[in-house]
Nucleic acid binder design. Structure first.
Lengths: 216, 216
DNA sequence: CGAACGAACGAACGATCGTTCGGATGCGTG
DNA sequence: CACGCATCCGAACGATCGTTCGTTCGTTCG
């Protein structure tokens, strides 16, 4: 179970709208897999090239540097996460409880659907220079603030009960983040099962009074 | 807030009982800081040597390889974590609820007290060969199994209510893990505050019926 | 047909990597 | 003083790193 691998997922996955056509897309996909499995610093441009069916020199015809490839992956990952949770919350009505459920479901869903993208976008982000990471930092802050605002609204309305809104953000965000490392499609658990259970956990953390007849 | 750093902590911390005297201790401490901030692959032996006040060649008089230094840090980190949670649980009586509180408090306490050690021991573990990582893997599995057994006992006794014990382990463990990345001693939050709140969150995740008069 | 162009490549650049080796230095013990 | 022993270091090893340069190739378009 606890194997000597960084994450359980074995295949890189990139949405068509985030994967440019042709060689740039192949490069991005190969880099995603290598960055996720070995880490940015331990993955060489030569390995990325080989995995893309190209030669190292060709990479630089499509990306100015190795760091730019990482920056693109981080941006894409955070963009997908931000887009996902924002859409989910907007579709969930005005009740903070529904919004939390929508947010956590989308957040966890992102980490089960794109585990490699999530791992790279979060664990390798610190490598980026302030300039190359600016877009990603902004997206990350947006998502975090959205969760914070939902929780604050729930507190103001008296439907949530936690001593510290920020600690709830950290706890709910943190447990979702970790999913990307252990989730594998060949698991006994379907993505929606994980998402549903984690959404329930989030409600419990926030001490929402639930219908006892709903059972476990 | 969301700065371009891997973790918020700024100083490496190593318990005296885990820090060998003399140069080996200095090397271990310097490597801890560099591995935590930049990652194992991005930190060079020359940097570790400079930070220890030594020359690169001297490192190899105390450790056979760079990987052995990481292996030692991972082992120390997981040993401290394992020792801490085991002691806490043993001191907490037979009630699974008390055991969960003790476990989570110790677990979170480890991540606030030794954030760099926790980050390195968890995020860089995958680098180690099966041989060099064996001791660490064993400790990690022990800790995880202990948490799983506590939760299972609580389920059997009917004091916990979750649909899936493993998902609860993942959620509770995951939210604690993440603390090491954002916690900083210069925060407004004391370590015990974080630990107490997270212990409460764990109880809520497990749907323990608490005294409503206890407030938030 | 021939000019223009983007994509891909072979080869090499300087830099840095982990690591090794032989020797210098200091110190406690005979 | 002479010795053994551990510590430390200067210098260098081969390997690999990210990146660049000049060129070749196939396609497109006038």
């Amino acid at each position: 179970m606890t194997l000597n691998r960084r994450l359980a997922a074995k295949a890189a996955r990139l949405l068509p709208e985030h994967k440019p056509p042709g060689s740039p897309g192949l490069i991005l996909e190969a880099a995603l897999k290598l960055f996720a499995e070995r880490g940015y610093a331990a993955a060489s441009v030569r390995e990325i090239a080989a995995a893309s069916g190209l030669k190292p020199a060709t990479i630089y015809g499509h990306y100015p540097s190795k760091e730019h490839i990482l920056a693109e992956l981080c941006r894409v990952g955070h963009e997908e996460q931000n887009r996902s949770v924002r859409a989910a919350v907007l579709n969930s009505g005005a009740d903070p409880r529904d919004q939390i459920v929508a947010y956590v479901r989308a957040h966890v869903g992102m980490h089960t659907s794109f585990p490699m993208l999530a791992v790279v976008a979060n664990a390798e982000l610190h490598v980026l220079s302030a300039e190359l990471g600016a877009a990603t930092f902004s997206l990350r802050e947006q998502s975090e603030r959205l969760l914070g605002e939902i929780i604050q609204r729930g507190l103001d309305r008296g439907v949530f009960h936690v001593p510290n809104a920020w600690l709830a953000v950290a706890a709910i965000g943190g447990m979702g983040l970790r999913v990307a490392y252990w989730y594998s499609p060949e698991y006994r658990l379907e993505p929606h099962e994980v998402a549903d259970v984690y959404a329930e956990y989030a409600l419990r953390i926030l001490a929402v009074k639930t219908d006892p007849s709903a059972g476990l």
